[in-house]
Every structure is written in structure tokens, then in C-alpha cells.
């Protein structure tokens, strides 16, 4: 079985150097992503599939694939908790 996440509809983002600023236009909230989170977010936005994303993160962050996968899972979970991502099929 597969499940997944997608970006909340009202989220807009901009890159400022190595920092990303995310805003939710509808909820009037904002978040700043730095470091690994900024890297992962940009990779997500390229549209990579999950396994390729894990491999890319593993290479960029010099982690083995298991660690990269756990790191990515943790970030996705955090973003979901913060309201940046929603689980697929949860409405927009």
C-alpha cells in the first residue's frame, strides 16, 4: 500500500540565499526552512519520486540511504504536523 503527501494549496515559497520562506496565503502563516529542510523542500519541488529523493538526499547530506530515508520521513512528518503538507486524498 502507498500513501503520500502533497503541498497545501495555499502555500507559496521563495528562495532567499540558502533560506526558504514559505507562506500560507489563506491561513496567514509563514515558515522559514534552512539547511537540510531547505534542500529537501527544493528537491521535492523538482518533482522527484520518493526513492530518487532519498538517493539524492543521501548523496547531498552524506548519509547512508537508511539514514536519509529516516531523515526525510521525519521532515515530511514535521511539515505535515505544521500544516505545510497534507496527506494525499485529505482534501485541499
Amino acid at each position: 500500500m502507498k500513501a503520500g503527501y502533497c503541498c497545501i494549496g495555499g502555500i507559496l515559497w521563495v528562495k532567499n540565499g540558502d533560506t526558504l520562506l514559505l507562506v500560507d496565503d489563506t491561513q496567514r502563516r509563514s515558515w522559514t526552512l534552512r539547511g537540510d529542510e531547505a534542500i529537501a523542500w527544493e528537491l521535492l519541488c523538482t518533482g522527484y519520486r520518493y526513492e530518487k529523493l532519498v538517493r539524492q538526499l543521501s548523496l547531498i547530506l552524506a548519509l547512508d540511504e537508511t539514514a536519509a530515508r529516516e531523515h526525510l520521513q521525519a521532515m515530511l512528518h514535521t511539515w505535515h504536523q505544521k500544516g505545510i503538507l497534507q496527506q494525499n486524498g485529505a482534501g485541499s
Binding site: M1, K2, A3, G4, C6, C7, L12, W13, V23, L44
Partner: peptide, 17 residues
């Protein structure tokens, strides 16, 4: 106008989600 939306969706194994 610098801001953009990325309409991505990513599939992960259910237990990972």
C-alpha cells in the same frame, strides 16, 4: 511575484507516512 507554488505530491510506503 518572486513567490511560487509547487504542486508536488510524493508517494511513500504507508507505514512510512
Amino acid at each position: 511575484r518572486r513567490f511560487r507554488h509547487s504542486d508536488f505530491a510524493i508517494q511513500v510506503a504507508e507505514q512510512e507516512a
